[in-house]
Amino acid sequence: MNYSFDFMYDIIKNRNKDYDGVFFTCVKSTGIFCLPSCKAKTPFSKNVEFISTALEAKEKGYRPCRRCHPMNGPHFYPKWLEKIETYLANNLNRAVLDLELSNLVNLEISTVRRHFKNKHTLSLKEFHRNLRLEKARKLMQEGKTMKEIHPLVGYQSVKGLKLAYTKHLGIM
């Protein structure tokens, strides 16, 4: 690492994701190491040591943070996110309620939303709507009419599907 201590400490104070995986923050007082973007409280500078790799941090006796999961790389996504994505893809014929998704993975919906948006940069509803409209587009290419398609992709009416389709793709 060719960065100064002050530079790296500023990175962790600002929680800059650009340096995730470039270096790791080890906190002497807790024995934990984190990614620079970790949302945990910024430790005092006297308690910080910067390390180049996660393996080096483990060899020095630090354990990985349970909040930022530094051993899983900078782009950690929980395994339960796949379950949410599959559920949304398998339920294109209707709107999916937040409560269903929350119950599916037994987590608060705010946690589900946060991790989902971090991965997809879309909300759950936007992602699901995009899947539904993409299916509608494919069905239209196969020669199906809007009247046949709208119930298959979870729209109450042809007009509702047309409006969403036009807004999403800008064409009809």
Rank of each mutant, 00 (worst) to 15 (best):
33 F>A: 01
34 C>Q: 11
34 C>N: 12
37 S>Q: 05
37 S>N: 07
38 C>G: 07
38 C>W: 02
39 K>W: 05
40 A>D: 11
42 T>K: 11
42 T>C: 14
42 T>D: 06
43 P>F: 06
45 S>D: 12
47 N>E: 15
47 N>S: 15
47 N>R: 03
47 N>H: 14
47 N>V: 06
48 V>G: 08
50 F>W: 07
53 T>M: 09
56 E>R: 10
59 E>S: 11
60 K>C: 01
60 K>T: 01
61 G>W: 04
63 R>K: 15
64 P>M: 13
64 P>C: 12
65 C>F: 09
66 R>G: 15
66 R>P: 00
69 H>V: 01
71 M>I: 11
74 P>M: 11
75 H>A: 11
75 H>I: 07
78 P>C: 14
78 P>T: 09
79 K>L: 13
80 W>H: 05
82 E>S: 14
87 Y>D: 04
88 L>W: 04
89 A>W: 00
90 N>W: 05
90 N>P: 00
90 N>C: 12
90 N>A: 14
93 N>F: 13
94 R>H: 04
94 R>G: 02
95 A>R: 15
98 D>K: 09
98 D>Y: 11
100 E>T: 03
102 S>T: 06
102 S>V: 06
104 L>G: 02
105 V>W: 00
106 N>A: 12
107 L>S: 02
108 E>S: 10
110 S>Y: 08
111 T>H: 12
113 R>H: 06
114 R>K: 13
117 K>T: 10
121 T>I: 07
122 L>D: 10
122 L>Y: 08
123 S>K: 03
124 L>A: 07
124 L>P: 01
125 K>L: 10
126 E>V: 10
127 F>N: 02
127 F>D: 01
127 F>P: 00
127 F>W: 14
130 N>P: 00
131 L>N: 10
131 L>F: 05
133 L>G: 06
134 E>H: 09
134 E>V: 01
134 E>Y: 08
135 K>V: 01
135 K>G: 02
136 A>D: 03
136 A>N: 03
